[in-house]
Design a protein around this nucleic acid. Structure first.
Lengths: 193, 193
DNA sequence: TAGTCAATAGACCGGTCGGCATATTGCTAG
DNA sequence: CTAGCAATATGCCGACCGGTCTATTGACTA
């Protein structure tokens, strides 16, 4: 069995990264939240904070990619799935008081430039997201190029509205962008794009 | 005359916030870069790091808003202006090695939730951007509602692709989203949106 | 030229940071 | 039963954090 302590460390770190990024997340804070001593952490992650954070970003990426796949499966069109994703983010941000955002975005902005290991993790995550979404768009009949472009735009809109929501402490930008995107993604608009 | 030291402090802080966010930016680092002693800093910003950062975010917001206005003035259509903005960001990120991003985004993600003063500054910035862009879109004949929705989408795309670019250490997402947005913003597409 | 005060300069503080060394636990194999 | 080792549990370290303190500078005024 995978160590329970190791999982708790990753989950706590992932949550903290989502709310405050890499630099602001202290190891002592992680240990307190995960109810684990530092020794355990350096046993499971000899690379220290950097390795733990990379694992947490990977964990977040897996969870969010799985969630993305679920949304795509549960909806008839990609447009519907994207709308549902935006709605779920509105709900989540509202419930957490605009604190819990995206671990990939937070780490990308404050640590990717100076920590190659973290840049690799954030890069993997973004590539997986766009790839997954682009595949779904291709399955709807769009060309590979169009699918990639639209997928990039959608992911950017998600990350961007997240930034705006935290900046304004309001979910209004997310809802607004959702409506603007719905038209762009409508299957019948495929030819026009 | 406004103190030269004060300006240097704000500019250095703004630059550091763009590259690494609030938490990762140490006051000692700011002092070293601005070539100023701590005493001067606490004279000009009695509120300490938080007040200095808020001033730096405001400074960044002013500069970027002025730049946005210039792009809108220098181009015939909003679509052209947006394309030019994306291109300029591609250039800037490439030249700085994917380090210098957006101060508003970095601060919003890692500090806005826990520092009300900073949340106010980031909120002001985002509102100004969307307002400026929406006004330009209205001047092109779009309804107030449509203009606001499109403006939100464009700002989100900028911030989002910035996140993706830093995450992937590549400017490809910016260029891709630019092309996807160009069609959406084409004036003749106004009726279709 | 003496007085005044905005502004600069840097030493210093308690606290916290990430990281490491050193037990100690508890399961498992022989 | 016990030897061995994965895993847990602390205590401590030097470095650096943001913040405060007391001088000192330098330009302008009376």
């Amino acid at each position: 069995m995978a160590s329970d302590t190791r999982d708790r460390l990753i989950r706590s770190t992932s949550r903290l990264l989502r709310t405050q990024g890499y630099a602001a997340t202290g190891l002592n804070q992680v240990m307190a939240e995960a109810q684990a001593p530092k020794g355990s952490m350096y046993f499971h992650f000899p690379g220290g904070k950097e390795e733990l954070a990379a694992a947490a970003v990977d964990h977040f990426a897996e969870r969010s990619t799985a969630s993305l796949r679920r949304f795509l499966d549960d909806n008839d069109t990609v447009a519907d799935a994207v709308v549902a994703i935006f709605d779920s983010y509105v709900d989540h941000l509202g419930r957490t008081g605009y604190t819990e955002g995206c671990a990939v975005a937070s780490v990308a902005l404050d640590a990717a430039a100076s920590h190659a290991v973290l840049a690799e993790a954030t890069g993997r995550a973004v590539r997986t997201w766009t790839g997954t979404l682009a595949a779904a768009l291709e399955a709807e009949g769009r060309s590979a190029e169009q699918a990639h472009a639209l997928a990039t735009l959608v992911i950017a809109a998600i990350e961007g509205t997240l930034v705006m929501a935290k900046a304004q402490q309001s979910t209004e930008p997310i809802a607004t962008a959702r409506d603007a995107l719905r038209a762009t993604l409508a299957p019948e608009a495929a030819a026009a794009t």
